[in-house]
Write a protein that binds this DNA or RNA. Structure first.
Length: 246
DNA sequence: GCGACAG
DNA sequence: ATCTTGTCGC
């Protein structure tokens, strides 16, 4: 892994932002992997890992769940102290090391990883998924429930399951205006107009294009809003948390 | 001062 | 993210 990019929570804000620019420069936002992208989500496809966290006071419970189609290949977790608060734009400096600790407990080598947060949809194009994806040099995708920055090319309301709307760079993003940095992806939707589900905001982490990131999210979603690897990681983190109590 | 943004 | 009962809708 790229040790020089491991997040340092003790760095100054300026240093953190400078490192994010270096990470964005080291990241690749085009497809760069060996496995068959169309097989993602199938039982004969690549190993897809999901990462999520739960919190207790100033500690983080990080969980990683590796899947292949409908089966769980391995689950791992780590409980780590949190040194800095949540700051929009600097999330990887708070949760990065706890996540890396969980990966150290993992014996499987996932082919790609889905993170809970943004990737390229970030002020300096270096969100959590991009940062950790570069450190581990693994194809990664950022799956967020809310939009950090960027502009949807069209309305993201009332989308049907399977649909997507492009998210482009705006003045808040360190990229040429109009650069496609991700997609609003509707993994689930109700038929009746009474109840509705908001889309997910998907962006490339590392070694994947925005289109492919959206494809994988839809391919691994199984009837729920969150893709399966992420749902399983969320559940695992919650399980570990309740085991620890307070 | 105003605006405002993942988890 | 987390604190939390009931409640609306399928």
């Amino acid at each position: 892994m790229r040790r020089e990019f491991v997040p340092d929570p003790g760095a100054s804000r300026a240093e953190m932002e400078a490192q994010q620019r270096d990470i964005a420069a080291a990241a690749t936002f085009i497809d760069d992997f060996e496995f068959d992208s169309d097989a993602v989500g199938s039982d004969t496809g690549p190993l897809v890992a999901g990462v999520d966290q739960a919190f207790l006071d100033d500690r983080a419970v990080s969980a990683v769940v590796v899947t292949r189609g409908d089966s769980v290949v391995e689950r791992a977790h780590a409980v780590s102290p949190l040194s800095i608060p949540y700051i929009p734009g600097l999330l990887s400096f708070r949760e990065g090391n706890p996540i890396l600790a969980a990966f150290e407990e993992l014996s499987t080598e996932p082919d790609c990883v889905l993170f809970d947060g943004s990737g390229r949809i970030h002020f300096r194009q270096a969100g959590l998924a991009t940062h950790i994806g570069v450190v581990l040099d693994v194809p990664s995708v950022g799956v967020a429930k809310n939009l950090l920055c960027g502009a949807p090319e069209a309305s993201t309301e009332g989308l049907a399951a399977g649909e997507r709307v492009g998210i482009d760079a705006d003045e808040d993003v360190d990229a040429p205006a109009g650069t496609r940095i991700g997609y609003a992806v509707q993994t689930k939707q109700y038929e009746s107009p009474n109840r509705h589900v908001n889309p997910l905001y998907v962006s490339p982490g590392h070694r994947v294009s925005a289109e492919t990131a959206a494809d994988w999210t839809l391919a691994t979603a199984a009837g729920y809003k969150l893709p399966e690897p992420t749902r399983l990681a969320d559940a695992h983190a919650a399980d570990v948390k309740r085991t620890i109590d307070t």
